[in-house]
Design a protein around this nucleic acid. Sequence first.
DNA 1: CCGCATCCGGGGCGATACTG
DNA 2: CAGTATCGCCCCGGATGCGG
Lengths: 224, 224
Amino acid sequence: MKSYGQYCSVAKTLDLVGDRWTLLIVRELLLRGPIRYTDLRGGLPGIATNLLADRLRALEAAGVVAREEPGPPIATTLFRLTPRGEELREALEALGRWGIPLMVPGPAAGDAFRAPWLAFPAEQFLADRRPDGPPVRIEVRTAEGAIVIESREGRIQTLPGTTEKPDAVLSGKSHAVLGLLTGRVDLPAAESMGLRCEGDRAVLRRLLPKPIATAPEPAPKLSS
Amino acid sequence: MKSYGQYCSVAKTLDLVGDRWTLLIVRELLLRGPIRYTDLRGGLPGIATNLLADRLRALEAAGVVAREEPGPPIATTLFRLTPRGEELREALEALGRWGIPLMVPGPAAGDAFRAPWLAFPAEQFLADRRPDGPPVRIEVRTAEGAIVIESREGRIQTLPGTTEKPDAVLSGKSHAVLGLLTGRVDLPAAESMGLRCEGDRAVLRRLLPKPIATAPEPAPKLSS
DNA sequence: CCGCATCCGGGGCGATACTG
DNA sequence: CAGTATCGCCCCGGATGCGG
């Protein structure tokens, strides 16, 4: 994209990561770590393959992404964030926080969903009420994949995929899971939305936010 | 722009503010407050006037911007952020922080500059070492306008424009001012870059960051 | 003047096909 | 698997016009 030509740190940032799709590529790399081109495509439904290649080249030139060619055992290329790219996490989190109210009405018709996208809300809204307790892991399953939410020593972390012997398992539609994770609805309400919960419910109560008396923010008008 | 069609809060945010120029429009509204269309254009060198009108309409529909028609004394329209729009400040600040290293090499050939753009670095890097002291104001003048940096009760604020009886006045090139405000260079070094300083230098020492032993971050490669 | 609307060229973007 | 090639289309950029 053409530079904005402005000596301003916001404009300079957008010169590098303001292109369409670019910040979503960074999102995937933040959430899923070193990843193959094809898996990256899978996490970015809708992107054109030439655009993905273009963006990866530009991000590499900008020092945000590094390309890694592992040795003989692995015959593929991995893309990962550089330390400088990792520093975009704060900005991505801020943008994601701002977007939470936009998720309340539920997915629009035709919206894609991937389980790792739950990681931002999870790390943002969950907190361990017993930070000194033993580590716990909750597995979250949706039709489009699973993530594991782990709390150890008071820190919440998420990993894509599943785990053995989770303390609890949540499964259901993305909208119901999200309502629960953001504290917008409580567990019984989420279950009435189709969420299923197995395992130790005390572990859930330990991590889940207190449901908030919803602010009177009106549903944003749909446009575009 | 077309929606990404992803049920993810980052993607939903970018659906609303990810268009080219949109976040820079929000930047101007954050830094300069309610403002006329023409002045907005002046703060966004390079934007096409039809794009500005399009973006303002879209931001209005998204609930980020409100249009205000003052009464008879004023015969113009003012654009301002809604409270929801103000909430984008954190995201803009995070993006601006990430871009500070990109400012170190100085403006690229042909880069535009406006004094209010210094506000993000100023509020980010300055801190009052004597929060209980009397309020102080520093006026910063460049060829492209001036801002006032004010500290009262330990809080740093910036306003576009000038003020009467500032405690100190800094004037010079944007690059020198920025180096000083971010703590990359100290006052003597900035003066050797052409910065001029009048008034109470103790006030400057009270607010300026301690110059940092510069991290060994190499200058980012230029590309575009 | 201020706040746009219209027109038009060029390029970024989207979808599909194809390849080492 | 990791891209390149190709081809419309629409968004963007720049200029001009125009009603209030």
